[in-house]
Amino acid sequence: MGFKLLSKLLVYLTASIMAIASPLAFSVDSSGEYPTVSEIPVGEVRLYQIADGVWSHIATQSFDGAVYPSNGLIVRDGDELLLIDTAWGAKNTAALLAEIEKQIGLPVTRAVSTHFHDDRVGGVDVLRAAGVATYASPSTRRLAEVEGNEIPTHSLEGLSSSGDAVRFGPVELFYPGAAHSTDNLIVYVPSASVLYGGCAIYELSRTSAGNVADADLAEWPTSIERIQQHYPEAQFVIPGHGLPGGLDLLKHTTNVVKAHTNRSVVE
Rank of each mutant, 00 (worst) to 15 (best):
F168C: 03
V187R: 01
W55Y: 09
A94I: 09
R141Y: 04
G169D: 08
L217H: 05
A51N: 12
S191I: 08
S27G: 08
R206A: 12
T207H: 06
E44R: 07
V11F: 08
D52Y: 08
I17Q: 04
P138S: 14
A209L: 08
V42N: 13
R46H: 04
L24S: 11
S223H: 02
V124W: 03
Q49A: 09
S161C: 14
L24F: 07
E101A: 14
T153C: 06
E33Y: 14
A200P: 06
L96I: 14
I151P: 09
G177R: 01
T254R: 11
A178D: 13
L243A: 06
D118G: 09
A51F: 07
Y175E: 02
L127A: 07
P190Y: 15
E99A: 13
I100E: 01
V126R: 09
S155E: 09
P41N: 12
E233D: 12
S38R: 10
K258Q: 07
G53C: 04
T261K: 04
E172N: 15
H241G: 00
I17S: 04
R46D: 07
A209F: 12
V171G: 02
H230V: 10
G43R: 12
L106E: 14
Y12W: 11
T253Y: 01
Y135D: 01
A95N: 10
G245L: 01
P41L: 10
G198A: 06
L243Q: 15
I50H: 06
Y135S: 12
I238F: 07
E267A: 05
G53Y: 04
S208K: 11
H241W: 00
G163F: 10
A59Y: 03
S7E: 12
A259Y: 14
P41S: 08
G78P: 03
A192R: 07
K8H: 12
E172M: 14
L106M: 14
G89D: 09
V126K: 13
A200H: 03
H154K: 05
V121C: 05
V257T: 14
T253D: 00
M18C: 04
P138Y: 15
H260S: 06
V265A: 11
S162P: 12
V28T: 08
V121I: 08
T140I: 03
S7F: 04
S56E: 07
N71G: 09
L127F: 05
P41H: 05
E147W: 08
E39V: 12
V67I: 08
Y188R: 01
N92W: 04
Y175H: 05
N255R: 11
S191V: 09
D29H: 10
A19Q: 15
G163H: 14
P152T: 15
V166Y: 11
E147I: 08
W55P: 01
P138G: 10
A234H: 01
D85L: 00
G163C: 04
S161T: 10
G240H: 04
R120W: 01
F168V: 12
P41Y: 14
A234E: 03
S264G: 13
F26G: 06
Y231E: 01
L247H: 14
S62Y: 09
V124D: 05
A179G: 12
S70P: 03
R141S: 12
Y34P: 07
G122T: 10
D64E: 08
Y188H: 10
M18L: 04
C199K: 00
V187Y: 01
I224G: 02
T109S: 13
P221L: 11
Q228C: 15
S16G: 13
E101M: 14
V189D: 04
K102I: 08
F63W: 05
A178C: 03
E233Q: 13
S264E: 07
G89S: 08
G72A: 01
L5K: 05
S162H: 07
A165R: 13
A98W: 13
S139W: 12
V11A: 10
K4D: 05
D164P: 13
G78A: 06
K102R: 14
S62W: 12
A87D: 00
R128K: 08
Y48W: 06
Q61D: 07
T93F: 01
D119T: 00
A209T: 06
V266D: 14
Y188M: 08
G240S: 03
F26A: 05
H260K: 04
V187A: 08
G245W: 03
T207K: 09
V121W: 01
D77I: 07
R141H: 04
H115G: 00
L195R: 00
E147F: 15
R167Y: 05
F116E: 03
L204C: 04
Y12T: 13
E225C: 06
D64M: 09
D125G: 10
R206I: 14
N262Q: 06
D29S: 08
G122Q: 06
Y135F: 10
N184I: 02
G2L: 13
E145N: 11
I227Y: 00
S264N: 09
H252D: 03
Y34F: 04
P138T: 11
E101Q: 12
Y231H: 04
S160W: 13
A213R: 13
A165H: 13
L73C: 01
L5W: 12
Y188L: 07
L82W: 15
Y34I: 11
S264Q: 15
H230G: 12
S223G: 12
E101R: 13
V54E: 02
R76G: 09
Q103V: 12
